[in-house]
Design a protein around this nucleic acid. Structure first.
Lengths: 196, 196
DNA sequence: TCTAGTGTATGATCAGGATCATAAGAGTGA
DNA sequence: TCACTCTTATGATCCTGATCATACACTAGA
């Protein structure tokens, strides 16, 4: 939970519900709100002219999204779409800044969050550019494991299509690579779920 | 200039000089200092096991670098190397945070800087994944132009090799693509310099 | 139980960028 | 001025991941 719900509400946040597939904001728009996921799942996505998706990230319960344009004062470089029916907190930019000024610890939290996203993107960038599909996927899976779970084995909560959209590969390539990694003993597939 | 020099010095910063090619810090190290370029040029770089470089970014006079690991409390995900002989300000993490706490405006500046880097990396990620070399290069050049200069035509201050290292392409591909873009009238080449 | 929709799987072919080789031009320092 | 290094340049070949086509597996809902 980035900002506690009661604090958000005290500063005038409202909630809004979005059905699956609906955009919360679109690339190119002015950033006027701070957003935080109350429940559901949001993806940040770029579309190429051929319609191919590239997913910048998934945001789940408690995560904030779409802040960089508020801080950096530029338009949204990607669109936010509800990956599932989701309830979202919305807080006006001005009120968001007031909240930050009043709560130094939360302000620092955002430095940490931005830094971590930077780490993820930097990692994916160097991975994708020195592309071996297996290496890309392995790095993504390791990162997810570090972030999400500490168990020695955990079930990847993404479909092959989503992994493809995050790594810039095609579904078929992901499927083939995952299978190869399984036969090499690098991961397990339990009734189609990837266990890493 | 992220942090004014006198303020840095007042908080106990020291300067250090690095010859071209020397590392300021290496991937995997603990982050204990804040760094800012006094003069020269620094590149942030990842190496693949085959030795291929991927350049996360170049940092010039007045730029800070290597802060995310301080904020996010993780080890350096990339190495910083002097791209030219450079003089670098160095400030202990603890003193850096004291400085931030004393100067709210500077603290906000770092939000802005991190957000802008995030924008750059997100853009490159979606570009590289929906890879057409020409599109990748065009996007990089546009971004550089926006960031560095406002003139209608400006000389790109990078070699083809550096562009390759930033876009994940090979030199030959960059050279061929640049030539193609020239013959298509998308840019000019004035005695080997790229003018865009 | 049937159907629709989504996700997984697999083979065949193709194309584009990497790789390798070679060379010429430009900049730097002794 | 010469030697050396870095950068730009160009051609030939190769390889791998994209693309296209097709089919099966699983789930939810009627």
């Amino acid at each position: 939970m980035i900002i506690p719900e009661d604090l958000l509400l005290a500063h005038g946040a409202t909630t809004m519900e979005y059905p699956k597939g609906v955009a919360i904001f679109d690339r190119g728009e002015e950033a006027i709100n701070y957003y935080q996921v109350k429940n559901g799942e949001v993806k940040m996505v770029n579309y190429s002219q051929e319609g191919q998706e590239f997913v910048q990230g998934f945001f789940k319960k408690g995560d904030s999204f779409g802040e960089p344009p508020i801080f950096g004062n530029f338009t949204y470089p990607a669109s936010a779409v509800a990956a599932q029916r989701s309830k979202i907190f919305k807080l006006r930019k001005r009120h968001f800044f007031e909240l930050l000024e009043a709560h130094f610890e939360i302000h620092k939290k955002f430095n940490r969050i931005l830094s971590n996203r930077l780490r993820y993107k930097g990692m994916m960038l160097s991975e994708i550019s020195s592309h071996s599909p297996e290496h890309r996927i392995r790095t993504l899976l390791s990162f997810l494991k570090d972030q999400i779970a500490l168990e020695s084995e955990f079930e990847i909560p993404y479909t092959r299509q989503q992994i493809a959209d995050m790594t810039g590969l095609r579904v078929e390539t992901v499927i083939r690579t995952i299978k190869k990694m399984e036969s090499d003993g690098n991961l397990k597939i339990l009734n189609h779920k990837i266990v890493f």
